[in-house]
Design a protein around this nucleic acid. Structure first.
Lengths: 192, 192
DNA sequence: TATAATATATAACAAGTGTTATATAATACA
DNA sequence: TGTATTATATAACACTTGTTATATATTATA
């Protein structure tokens, strides 16, 4: 019916992703994407109604990448896995991570609301957390989410010592988890 | 020598600050500032060489505002004060806060490097922290900085329950501080 | 092979940007 | 009072942006 397709939706999103991860989402332009693909802007407008539709597709891609990291880091302990995956995302895609934090978009909220019940359920099955009420588990989880977010922001912004390896990050994450759990345990026993 | 000055440097920065705190720093334009002041762009260019110089002045203003918050929250305990001031900044100037986090600029790094020695010194004088080595104090401080940053980001992004008041934030902050310190104490005694 | 369909390139448009040249008018001082 | 100074307004400039109209060229199919 027509000439062969040289520039697919996927290629366009690839190019947009690359720009987003180096210059930030706000610095994406149609012409930059075209230039990165070696095309004009015409193929972009054939695949996307307008720039909003393209950014939406890009957001889906970004969420997909973060989920892919979570799959790759999967060891069976969702608590550790999410920590490891988030830290990898913050380090390997720091510009995108900062963009997501900055945007205050619904992705973070949705992501949380989706993950939280799973994590609480996992905590209930964790022998280390036996005996805690749901309220207490929620407090522990909240503290750890806060800490992990702070750690991720620090990683993304290069605010940690340069010699900090991924293992060091996981160590401080689990060390603080221990702190929170141990203290909750003590607090609980003192009330008896 | 000439007509009365109707638009001062300060008014210009005021207008820029207002735009920055509602739309973000990247959305500042000369014409928007002028419109907010009810002027043309001419007074702006009389006071600032170009947009970069203006943004620089705006950054100084933002740092000033955050320092003003720190002064207002000053109760003598720098640890608490910084927490309270940071959380207020994250809540009352959430767009600016996210902008600063996003930008990965030197302000955060400089701010940290300036504050850290003061805090460590303060910790050395804190009776609650007696007996810890400098290394141990550094670990405690790092954990608390991470937690506070995470909490601030959550506040700025509205990721916490809506009924969370400032006092609740301070409570969870100091509760986690207790967790970290108590656990460090226990860890220390177990090593003996 | 001729034709219809269409992927792509080019160029233009309108809107918005930073910046500057020019004109205007208000003030202080001789 | 007249004049030099200068704060301000207006308008234009060059550039970038998203978007679209038009032209071109390539492919499958009749």
């Amino acid at each position: 019916m027509g000439p062969k397709i040289k520039f697919t939706k996927e290629q366009i999103i690839d190019a947009a992703f690359e720009i987003a991860n180096t210059e930030g989402i706000d610095n994406i332009t149609m012409r930059k994407i075209a230039e990165k693909m070696g095309s004009s802007v015409a193929p972009i407008y054939l695949n996307f109604k307008d720039v909003n539709e393209l950014i939406e597709a890009l957001m889906d891609r970004i969420v997909g990448v973060s989920q892919q990291l979570l799959i790759e880091e999967s060891t069976g302990n969702p608590f550790d896995d999410i920590g490891r995956a988030s830290l990898r995302f913050a380090r390997e895609y720091s510009v995108l991570f900062r963009n997501l934090v900055m945007k205050n978009n619904s992705y973070m909220k949705g992501y949380n609301e989706q993950m939280l019940p799973v994590l609480i359920q996992e905590m209930k099955n964790d022998p280390e957390l036996e005996g805690f009420t749901v309220d207490e588990l929620n407090t522990i989880l909240l503290k750890m989410r806060i800490f992990q977010l702070g750690l991720s922001v620090m990683v993304a912004n290069g605010l940690l010592p340069e010699d900090y390896k991924n293992q060091d990050l996981m160590d401080i994450l689990s060390s603080t988890a221990d702190d929170v759990i141990l203290s909750a345990r003590i607090r609980k026993s003192q009330l008896k």
